Simulated assay, not measured.
Amino acid sequence: MPEWIYFFDLCGTAVFALSGALAAGRHKMDPFGVIVLASVTAVGGGSIRDTLMGATPVFWINDPTYIIVILSTVLLTILLVRKPKRVPQKVLPIADALGLALFTIIGAEKALSMGLSGMSAVIMGLITGVGGGIIRDILCRQVPMVLRTEIYATASIAGGIGYTCSLSFGMADLSAMFLAMSTAFAIRLAAITWHLSLPAFDLRSQKPK
């Protein structure tokens, strides 16, 4: 893995660990609960991705730096964010949006590096981006964001498609990565800011004939 991709991967790990730690604080979990929630949020999606692609042992087992980043993020969050309820409400979704954008492209890049097709790369990017958040939300007894009407998975898919298409058109790796991450992050941020959502499939609203 190129050093710059590894750097972004660690940044995404820290961002998602922060997202999980803040979610744990809002649910009044103890320090062990914060570590667990931060960890599954940060490495859950990548673990599922590596398992599906047969890249085992999964990445964080081979490289303990990821665990160090998670534990450091948790420690700083516990020490610096003493009152999670006082943290602005948009901090958690914005941190989650940034992690989504970073991990989507990391997942797609790893799939392409293993010789998978562009479509498979988009799917692996999606799994990497949303997998940890799904586990986090389930542990918090919430419906995962990816299953609600919020524009979440759509942003990840758009980023993955943008990355694979940019590379196929000959764009440099770093430029393609920044463009795709910006696209995914901007779409998710717009959905948060203007409360954009997809139409719900609601059978209850249909009147029986």
Score class of each variant (00 low, 15 high):
residue 158 A to M: 03
residue 90 K to M: 15
residue 81 V to I: 15
residue 58 V to F: 08
residue 202 D to V: 13
residue 18 L to R: 02
residue 13 T to G: 05
residue 150 E to W: 00
residue 38 A to N: 05
residue 91 V to H: 07
residue 185 F to P: 04
residue 92 L to W: 09
residue 186 A to M: 14
residue 122 V to I: 11
residue 146 V to R: 00
residue 163 Y to A: 04
residue 72 S to C: 15
residue 164 T to Q: 03
residue 200 A to G: 07
residue 207 K to P: 09
residue 179 L to G: 02
residue 103 F to G: 06
residue 168 S to Y: 12
residue 53 M to T: 04
residue 144 P to V: 07
residue 19 S to M: 13
residue 178 F to Y: 12
residue 132 G to T: 07
residue 72 S to R: 07
residue 172 A to F: 09
residue 142 Q to I: 00
residue 124 M to I: 05
residue 80 L to S: 13
residue 71 L to H: 08
residue 80 L to C: 15
residue 158 A to K: 00
residue 40 V to F: 10
residue 30 D to L: 02
residue 2 P to R: 11
residue 93 P to R: 11
residue 77 T to N: 06
residue 21 A to Q: 00
residue 126 L to R: 01
residue 181 M to A: 11
residue 184 A to G: 10
residue 143 V to K: 11
residue 127 I to R: 04
residue 125 G to N: 01
residue 193 T to G: 05
residue 146 V to L: 07
residue 180 A to S: 15
residue 107 G to V: 04
residue 172 A to M: 12
residue 194 W to S: 09
residue 62 N to S: 13
residue 38 A to Y: 05
residue 88 P to K: 13
residue 196 L to A: 08
residue 89 Q to Y: 14
residue 102 L to R: 06
residue 155 A to Y: 00
residue 56 T to I: 14
residue 167 L to R: 03
residue 163 Y to P: 04
residue 137 D to C: 01
residue 8 F to A: 06
residue 110 K to D: 00
residue 173 D to I: 04
residue 33 G to S: 08
residue 45 G to A: 04
residue 185 F to Y: 08
residue 130 V to I: 11
residue 202 D to H: 13
residue 167 L to W: 04
residue 88 P to I: 15
residue 141 R to K: 07
residue 133 G to L: 02
residue 128 T to M: 02
residue 202 D to F: 13
residue 62 N to P: 10
residue 6 Y to G: 11
residue 134 I to T: 02
residue 73 T to Q: 10
residue 101 A to H: 02
residue 148 R to L: 02
residue 64 P to V: 06
residue 6 Y to A: 14
residue 50 D to S: 09
residue 19 S to H: 05
residue 125 G to F: 01
residue 49 R to Q: 08
residue 205 S to F: 12
residue 10 L to P: 05
residue 156 S to R: 01
residue 141 R to Y: 06
residue 136 R to H: 06
residue 176 A to S: 14
residue 82 R to E: 13
residue 44 G to K: 11
residue 115 G to N: 12
residue 201 F to N: 03
residue 132 G to F: 02
residue 156 S to T: 03
residue 116 L to C: 10
residue 39 S to L: 13
residue 73 T to H: 09
residue 71 L to A: 14
residue 19 S to C: 12
residue 145 M to S: 06
residue 98 L to A: 15
residue 123 I to E: 00
residue 25 G to V: 05
residue 36 V to N: 06
residue 61 I to H: 14
residue 40 V to L: 13
residue 166 S to T: 06
residue 138 I to G: 02
residue 70 I to W: 08
residue 175 S to E: 15
residue 31 P to W: 10
residue 64 P to S: 14
residue 204 R to Y: 14
residue 49 R to M: 09
residue 112 L to I: 14
residue 40 V to E: 03
residue 158 A to Y: 00
residue 203 L to W: 11
residue 203 L to D: 05
residue 70 I to Y: 10
residue 27 H to E: 13
residue 17 A to P: 00
residue 200 A to Q: 11
